[in-house]
Design a protein around this nucleic acid. Structure first.
Lengths: 210, 210
DNA sequence: GTCTATAATTTGATAGAC
DNA sequence: GTCTATCAAATTATAGAC
């Protein structure tokens, strides 16, 4: 009666990759409601019915994409913040590795943020389990520790973390608007992002160094 | 044959206000496709058909809301950046006035950003006319001027502007996610925003002062 | 101007042949 | 497994009485 749920049917890894890519593109650009199953199917080179064959519901597919997006965004961040480095070293690594990653996936952060606004509590519950986000608490603790030992100047550690995130994510996520109001070409904006990447550590050094 | 388009029919200003508020809430939270006309009508206390009586198409209503949102977000920014003040004075005023405004309308920036991602070129064309955004170019020029005269340290003016925007907007816009990953309560996050507001000028003073 | 009832359309989901 | 054709549901849009 209650058959075992077999969410994922076997499908060639090539097709799966194309499908996930197509779904990600559609959902990231248009959101859950704005994305069209037909478009996803077309872009993946399969029929619409195949989509329903593999993923019973649009919502399930969306959930999968969102989970992957959240995981990706935070896995890259976590990797750096959990290293055995000083705060300033981590900021340096963020400016290189994390920003490189974000530049390759510029739409991911906004996608996550947009969805989180619909129902923040539910979002946290579904996609931000405490175990996955504990690394931030540890990083904040590290900041407090370095302040206590006088390694860096005293600042509110939460504020510092929020500012690091802001300076990393916002220039990438807000590209269309920032580029628009600054009247820059796509190439000029790309250069601005490179500049931001280079200057970021120096900025935080000035804030944190005595 | 071609009757004059009378986009807006007379309607009591009280009803209009409730309607705009309802539409704004719905669109901001769920986006163009996610928002439901029924919900907007309900929240405004009118029937769904009245919505179509006043605004022929959902898209028209959305356009109105978006135009208002963009105007609001930039009018507040522009007001400060066009004053006859020094760069640092403007940063101080941003931290007070602009952040106060953003704290009262935390969802506006992300709404604008989300929509801009669907079709950046069209978005710029429809909602970011050069005349409305020229103030940023003037601000960038002012930064260059103050660098030339040695009033502030040399930095890339575009990068500086992007960073100012980042630090202002992102902590507000990303609240659900940042609050989630930092494991803070709503009240705790509100305090963090207040702290950010206070520390922001000092942050940029350290970057810009010799 | 405002409503209820209904049409039209869009789009997600399924049936059934191959 | 994959497709075409079709259904069902949701939602925008309109007609017509009052």
């Amino acid at each position: 009666m209650q058959r075992t749920e077999k969410q994922k049917v076997a499908l060639s890894s090539e097709t799966e990759e194309k499908l996930m890519k197509a779904a990600q593109n559609a959902f990231i650009k248009y959101g859950l409601e704005g994305a069209r199953m037909q478009e996803i199917a077309d872009e993946a080179g399969i029929s619409k019915s195949m989509l329903h064959y593999y993923f019973a519901k649009k919502e399930k597919l969306f959930e999968l994409i969102m989970r992957k997006a959240v995981l990706d965004v935070f896995a890259n961040l976590r990797k750096i913040l959990e290293e055995n480095d000083s705060v300033m070293s981590k900021i340096h690594r963020l400016s290189h590795e994390y920003l490189d990653y974000l530049h390759e996936h510029p739409y991911l952060p906004l996608f996550v943020l947009h969805e989180s606004h619909k129902d923040p509590a539910a979002f946290k519950n579904d996609f931000l389990p405490p175990a996955e986000t504990a690394f931030t608490t540890r990083f904040v603790a590290q900041i407090e520790e370095e302040i206590k030992t006088g390694k860096i100047r005293p600042v509110d550690p939460y504020v510092l973390f929020a500012q690091i995130m802001s300076v990393c994510v916002f220039p990438v996520a807000a590209q269309p608007v920032l580029q628009g109001i600054m009247n820059l070409s796509a190439d000029q904006y790309k250069m601005l992002l490179k500049q931001t990447q280079q200057q970021m550590p120096a900025f935080f050094e000035r804030i944190l160094n005595w």
